[in-house]
């Protein structure tokens, strides 16, 4: 583009050459763009393809022919084991309940709080924000012990709704900060125009800000959901009933401390990521929607 900018001020006789240059540039640019995307895809996908191939190979082939991705013989037995001898489908359902419930609760509470923080000026605002952040900064590994006692006391130990509520609280500080960040990028003029029309604040959020916020909301939702989907430590301490386990703990339980069948690890982790990829492919279109631009133009 730099060359284009320079050429603009030059004499008309150069325009022919300029066009050629432009086309050449567009082509190189597209080439670079695609080769970068493909390179990135390769780096991230190759290990997964390798993992997929490992899950159906005869065991010894994983070790003896590390580069061969096409198995000499395809074996589906680990997948059978996942879904028949282990209640893997149930683990998945549980994970969906916990992660979905948890991320929706976090988002609902955080949208309100983030609106308050973004749209009001008040004394102690920074302090409030820092205190909220503080909650997220403390590594919670050891706090599992008091948490265990507390959940027992609240009657939420070893229950599914307890997990949903707890998961709902886990990412709230994070979500407040993120959503406040997204709110801040929306000009206040947008709110004002709604107020002038007589809209209440809830209506302003719901009808005017939310559409603009959707990309940020979706990004936050995806990130929180994945975080909760992979949460392991709390679930393994707070759930006793094997029917309540999420897939993260289920996978570990399935592998146990003395399981050495790598195919099972591979298969379990692949099955684990499929729901998330589905959700992402449904939601990702909102990440690129032109809504933001459109709304501001109004």
């Amino acid at each position: 583009m730099a060359t284009l900018a320079n050429h603009v001020h030059q004499r008309p006789s150069h325009i022919q050459r300029l066009r050629k240059n432009l086309r050449f540039e567009v082509i190189t640019r597209v080439l670079i763009r695609y080769s970068l995307a493909l390179l990135a895809t390769f780096i991230f996908v190759y290990p997964l393809i390798w993992l997929a191939s490992a899950s159906v190979k005869p065991n010894w082939e994983i070790y003896r022919q590390p580069l061969q991705l096409i198995p000499s013989e395809v074996q589906w037995d680990v997948y059978e084991r996942l879904f028949q001898t282990a209640p893997f489908a149930r683990y998945m359902t549980n994970s969906v309940i916990y992660a979905l419930g948890g991320s929706l609760i976090s988002l609902a509470f955080s949208i309100l709080a983030a609106y308050g923080l973004s749209r009001y000026r008040f004394r102690g605002k920074r302090l409030t924000m820092v205190l909220i952040l503080t909650v997220q900064l403390i590594p919670g590994l050891v706090s599992m012990i008091p948490l265990y006692l507390m959940m027992r006391w609240l009657g939420l130990f070893n229950t599914q709704h307890g997990m949903v509520l707890l998961y709902g609280s886990l990412r709230i500080p994070w979500a407040i900060w993120v959503l406040k960040g997204y709110f801040d990028t929306i000009p206040i003029e947008l709110d004002e125009s709604a107020w002038i029309d007589g809209a209440s604040k809830f209506r302003t959020i719901w009808q005017i800000l939310m559409p603009v916020l959707v990309p940020g909301l979706v990004a936050a939702f995806i990130i929180i959901f994945i975080g909760l989907w992979n949460e392991f430590a709390l679930a393994s301490v707070l759930l006793r009933n094997p029917d309540y386990l999420p897939v993260s703990v289920g996978t570990y339980v399935l592998l146990g401390p003395d399981e050495s069948d790598f195919r099972l690890t591979a298969a379990a982790s692949l099955v684990n990521i499929i729901p998330i990829l589905l959700i992402f492919s449904v939601l990702q279109r909102y990440l690129v929607s032109g809504l933001a631009a459109g709304a501001v133009k109004q």
Partner: peptide, 25 residues
Amino acid sequence: SGPWPWLLPAILMLLVFRLYPLLSQ
């Protein structure tokens, strides 16, 4: 009319589930 009603639900949630464990930690 201030910001606190907006913040309250989230803060309550944090107080119930996060404060006690973190302080005891």
